[in-house]
Amino acid sequence: MNNEIKIKGILTPGKVISVTAIMCIVLVIVIVLSLVLGTADVTFKQVIGLITGAVTQDDPVRLIIFKIRLPRIILAGLVGFALSLGGVTFQALLRNPLADPFILGVSSGSAFGAVLAITFGLSFSLGVPVMAFMGGLLTIYLVMSLGARKMGMESSTILLTGVIVNAFFTAIIMFFISTSANDRLHTMLFWLYGDLSQSQYTQLLIIAPFLLLASIIIFSYAKHLNIITTGDEIASQLGVNVDRTKKIGLLIISLIMGLVVAFSGLIGFVGLIVPHLARMAFRSDHRMLIPVASIGGAIFLIAADTLARTIISPSELPVGVITAFLGAPFFLILLRKRGSQWSRS
């Protein structure tokens, strides 16, 4: 039978792959631009020269590019990728386009661990991330066991538990901040607003494989996520194992958030803005949304961090200040423009 109406909108693996490829090209361009920009003068030619191996060993530019800028850019990319992936996933699982990947309190738990570590003078290469990750794990355990045990995996219960746990840890953090010595205060505040300057290759090697694994697992649940956004009961009727999908999704993303926060501090708004833009461009099918938002998150955070380290050069801002500075007005404009259509994204 001939379909009298031709459908152009059906999603194919080919479409997903080609859009993902385009996003990757943009990502590479942004990385190269970000390598060039900075306090020390580096030219485009030098960067290309380094990549193609035309520049000699002991060139100071080489040091700046490979030891300082590149690891920081890669960290920004990985963190942005993770935050966006987390945003997309949580928004679907909690059926709320405005859910933040930090909403379950993982961030404040990690922050608690980090602030504790800074108070005791532990190092940024090991002590702070480990403590932050432990803090994140503690929160996940609390939220999952308190919020999700008896009542099944109901979204509002999980959300409420997250809010409460968040408030509790924030109180403890404030306690530590108000009683801490002055010299540590700056470090703490900088960390709390998101800091990518401590990046090292070893960290990247820890984050990258976990992130890759997490994104593959989440992507394999993309169709489940689509259906879960239309309601738990309906998803169950359509054959989705809702409880299992929620448990796996919440756990994986919380772990990734704990890991990422441990190395970068609290960088807000990425997990909100980028998925939102992706949804505006590609609607709500998560098979497209997950790769687009994740890579988009990497691009966005690399760009934001480049701004953070160049805008008041030679001094620099916490990257979280930039993302919030861009993010808040962005949302206000959207809110004004879209009004009651907000949730339609």
């Binding site: 386009p97 359509l238 339609r344």
Partner: peptide
């Protein structure tokens, strides 16, 4: 049914194919 996310009608109907598809399979 309250749809919080934006899907086209054909996308909504295609969700009905979920029980016939494998995890990573596209329609």
């Amino acid at each position: 049914q309250h749809f919080r996310f934006s899907f086209s009608c054909i996308e909504v109907v295609m969700m009905g194919r979920f029980p016939h598809l494998k995890a990573m399979q596209f329609e």
